[in-house]
């Protein structure tokens, strides 16, 4: 059951000071600061609400979430030690895996038959831990694939170029804009397979944005990326949130998390063990224990 919302000022000062520094004070972020940091807490304007979500593999319960809400328009980090169920949770929500039980609501609508493509068309786009840039297509073609509602993608219209030329042109312009923004414009016509690992991450993120999604879910966007590129990736994530897109991302590195997240959800052994503003969570005893692998029962007494 969702806990009641407590507009407590006393829980927030740490979080506030961090946001002052990062210079991203938007009206979007304000309301979340008043939410009491506690697992499963209700949020003012959730885009994603999960209830009783459970997935087990044999005897291992990978995900077991009573209640979790993701606030709209902010950056939420999903952290937790290895094997905590972060990626499994991503797979469940985006329809790439099937939950044993439980239900979730996206953008105010119940997700009844989760299929990845249908969810993507409804505005939930994800990226993958192992980047899925399409190596044999050019960077531009990769981008164009991300565009939604293409007339030319329907077989009856495909042979007749005039039917889809204008739309293709508009999509190309949009793609060029995004490529420029993500510093990939010079690679536009190269095959995506020739990009470096970090550039592929950038491409995958840019491609996800082609559909103007409501929610972007990034699975370890910073993994295996050199520090300079990682910095630029972080910048893009921040910009995304500023433009009104909700971002959820998985990350290991605590420093990264504290820098750009508005809210942090901590998973351990498939359960939400803590959530709250980044500073709050990072200094949370329970979280530290989970990361260091100490038994939770021992410290919570």
């Amino acid at each position: 059951m969702p806990a009641d919302r407590i507009p407590s000022k006393e829980s927030a000062p740490d979080d506030r000071s961090s946001f002052m520094d990062s210079a991203r004070r938007t009206t979007e972020v304000e309301p979340i600061l008043t939410v009491h940091p506690k697992p499963g807490v209700a949020k003012p304007n959730p885009i994603l609400t999960m209830d009783g979500l459970r997935r087990s593999f044999g005897g291992l319960t990978a995900v077991d979430i009573d209640h979790l809400e993701i606030e709209r328009g902010i950056v939420t980090a999903l952290i937790g030690p290895n094997g905590a169920g972060k990626t499994t949770l991503f797979n469940l929500i985006t329809g790439f895996d099937r939950a044993d039980r439980g239900r979730w609501e996206f953008n105010g609508q119940m997700v009844t038959s989760p299929s990845p493509d249908r969810l993507a068309r409804r505005g939930m786009v994800r990226t993958f831990q192992l980047t899925k840039s399409l190596a044999k297509l050019s960077v531009l073609q990769n981008m164009l694939l991300g565009a939604p509602h293409q007339i030319g993608e329907q077989l009856w219209a495909a042979p007749f170029r005039p039917l889809w030329r204008n739309q293709e042109q508009a999509n190309t312009e949009r793609a060029d804009e995004l490529l420029e923004q993500f510093n990939l414009a010079h690679m536009r016509d190269e095959l995506a397979g020739t990009l470096s690992g970090g550039q592929r991450k950038l491409l995958e993120m840019a491609r996800a944005l082609m559909s103007d999604p409501a929610l972007v879910m990034l699975d370890e966007p910073m993994a295996g990326v050199n520090p300079a590129l990682a910095q630029s990736l972080l910048g893009h994530i921040t910009e995304l949130a500023l433009s009104g897109v909700t971002v959820v991302y998985i990350e290991h590195d605590m420093d990264v998390v504290s820098g750009i997240s508005d809210w942090v959800v901590v998973l351990a052994q498939g359960q939400v063990i803590a959530e709250g503003g980044p500073w709050k969570v990072i200094h949370d005893e329970v979280v530290i224990d989970a990361y260091l692998g100490r038994r939770r029962a021992g410290t919570s007494s």
Binding site: L134, L145, E153
Partner: peptide, 23 residues
């Protein structure tokens, strides 16, 4: 056409095509 582009994306990685909303 864009239809052919979707085919090629499926050839390379079905899950990528799915994540971009292609049936």
């Amino acid at each position: 056409s864009p239809w052919g582009r979707v085919l090629k994306s499926i050839r390379e990685d079905q899950d990528a095509a799915r994540s971009l909303g292609k049936n």
